[in-house]
């Protein structure tokens, strides 16, 4: 195993990888959404360090939007998202981008590799915007690709198979040793065999790194891979009830 993928010990007192409170989001000008309805209305969600969570839900329940909110790519109307203890939405501009680059890895359904760049360069691109010293970039990128079984590191995405492309995307997502990996339908573009292999790699690499994994998927085959599974609609309801109970308990206590 490469030193790059050593497990991070989780010393006591460290914040969870992800902590969401009172998160609400609505697309501005969405014509099919009632004015008082939220696209995302999530009272709370905590993901411990190195924990792996599968988020499911029907189309339009805002799974991808939730990942974008967590990554700080869109701003919520209300609520907070703490990634590795940092309120990502309290950061603005370049600091938020830098934080995202170093604390969050993202894996996409269509991989979103940079066309025209080699596998190695795609991974180096992630390191380029991180705080990792440039002298280490090449070794780290090569180690990440090697760990994920990519030998043709100078091949462009167009020259790689779909499965290999996904593995390059995984290497890119984890090379900066993020606290949190967000996977948005990571197997939707793969055949069952490649999908299983890809998920084996994603999950094992996240475990090795001690990175929490939040995976969004429609694929029923994914269910058995995760000990913790959350259905987005139900999550809203259950955490809302828990929060209400908590509020009632606090209110009752105060009385």
């Amino acid at each position: 195993m490469s030193s790059t993928f050593q497990h991070h010990d989780d010393p006591g007192g460290k914040p969870p990888a992800l902590s969401i409170r009172g998160l609400r989001f609505r697309y501005v000008g969405a014509v099919d959404t009632p004015a008082d309805a939220w696209t995302i209305d999530l009272p709370s969600l905590d993901v411990a360090r190195a924990e792996q969570v599968l988020l499911t839900g029907g189309s339009g329940t805002g799974k991808s939007t939730l990942l974008h909110l967590i990554a700080g790519l869109v701003d919520p109307a209300e609520g907070t998202v703490l990634v590795d203890g940092t309120n990502i939405h309290a950061l603005a501009g370049a600091p938020r981008d830098r934080f995202r680059g170093s604390a969050i890895g993202m894996i996409f359904q269509t991989f979103n590799l940079l066309a025209g760049f080699s596998a190695l360069e795609n991974v180096l691109a992630a390191l380029m915007f991180s705080s990792v010293p440039p002298a280490k970039h090449h070794d780290l990128a090569e180690a990440a690709l090697s760990r994920l079984g990519i030998t043709r590191i100078h091949a462009t995405p167009e020259e790689l198979s779909v499965g290999q492309q996904q593995r390059v995307a995984v290497a890119r997502a984890v090379v900066c040793r993020p606290a949190l990996v967000l996977a948005d339908e990571p197997t939707a573009s793969l055949d069952p065999e490649n999908a299983e292999h890809a998920m084996d790699l994603v999950q094992s690499v996240c475990r090795e790194l001690g990175a929490a994994l939040v995976c969004v998927s429609h694929d029923p085959a994914m269910t058995s891979r995760f000990e913790r599974r959350e259905k987005l609609g139900a999550l809203v309801q259950s955490t809302g009830e828990a929060l209400a109970a908590s509020v009632a308990s606090i209110a009752g206590g105060s009385r």
Partner: peptide, 16 residues
Amino acid sequence: RRQIAVLRVLGCSRPR
């Protein structure tokens, strides 16, 4: 636009 979006996800700032 997609390449720019990916670079942003990887940590590239708007000014950059």
